[in-house]
Nucleic acid binder design. Structure first.
Length: 244
DNA sequence: GCCTAATTCAAAC
DNA sequence: GTTTGAATTAGGC
């Protein structure tokens, strides 16, 4: 007897936008980030409808990834060969689909210009750190490269609330989204950690080195990303060079 | 019906 | 693979 669940939409178009589908794929991954090819795979595995006309919907999905600030492009580590970058969810985008609205959001998630610049700065720093870790001959860091992002001026209790407090308004599981006809299991799990906590500098270094966390993670204050001061970062490369 | 998010097509990089 | 723009479709109020 065929199992219900995953493919319960059969060949029908699932009632999810590309943004929802992409978010589901990213959420369901252990690292909370996926390359484009894995996002495609997640969708075609679960929704037979998308096994046809792949060129059309995949182009649309790519458009969404670039166009929407809720998706963050994370540089691929050189020791993980493959095409393209990884895609993650912006941690502040978690309540995008509140009230179970997976078709059309009330409002588009759009970063303010300054927030976008700060984020771009962080990602550029990450890419440079990445290069450094995997390039033993490149043994010095240009000071400007690692200039820390200015911390929020005199952060108040309100503006220093860590990102870890951001949780989906309503807890749910990926399975319950995919198979709405099947009663959702009680969700005893913690909501997924926000994407930035997953790929912040510390876990990133941890992955690269296979060693305990050695530098403070990138932190996120309400609309502000803060990477560790340059002097803290500079302690890491020797360790990196030893183990890579 | 209006507003705007989502989708589509496609060019340029 | 990524970004962007323009045109069109369609959801939600």
């Amino acid at each position: 007897m065929p199992r219900p669940s995953r493919e319960s939409y059969g060949d029908q178009k699932p009632p999810y936008s590309y943004i929802s589908l992409t978010a589901m794929a990213i959420w369901s991954s252990p690292e909370k980030m996926l390359p484009l090819s894995e996002i495609y795979r997640f969708i075609t595995d679960r929704f037979p409808y998308y096994r046809r006309n792949t060129q059309r919907w995949q182009n649309s999905l790519r458009h969404n990834l670039s166009f929407n600030d809720c998706f963050i492009k994370i540089p691929r580590r050189p020791d993980r060969p493959g095409k393209g970058a990884y895609w993650a969810l912006h941690p502040a985008a978690f309540d995008m689909f509140e009230n179970g609205s997976l078709l059309r959001r009330r409002k588009r998630f759009k970063l303010l210009k300054n927030d976008k610049e700060v984020l771009d700065n962080e990602l550029a720093a990450l890419a440079n750190i990445n290069r450094f870790f995997f390039s033993p001959t490149e043994n010095q860091i240009e000071p400007a490269t690692f200039a820390p992002t200015p911390r929020p001026p005199s952060p108040s209790p309100v503006t220093t609330e860590p990102i870890t407090n951001i949780r989906p308004k309503r807890s749910f599981t990926i399975e319950s989204l995919i198979s709405p006809d099947k009663p959702a299991e009680p969700n005893t799990q913690e909501a997924p950690a926000p994407a930035l906590m997953q790929w912040g500098l510390a876990p990133y270094c941890d992955l690269a080195l296979g060693q305990p966390m050695l530098i403070p993670p990138m932190t996120y204050y309400n609309h502000h990303y803060v990477i560790p001061p340059a002097e803290e970062l500079l302690r890491v490369p020797q360790l990196a060079l030893r183990s890579v």
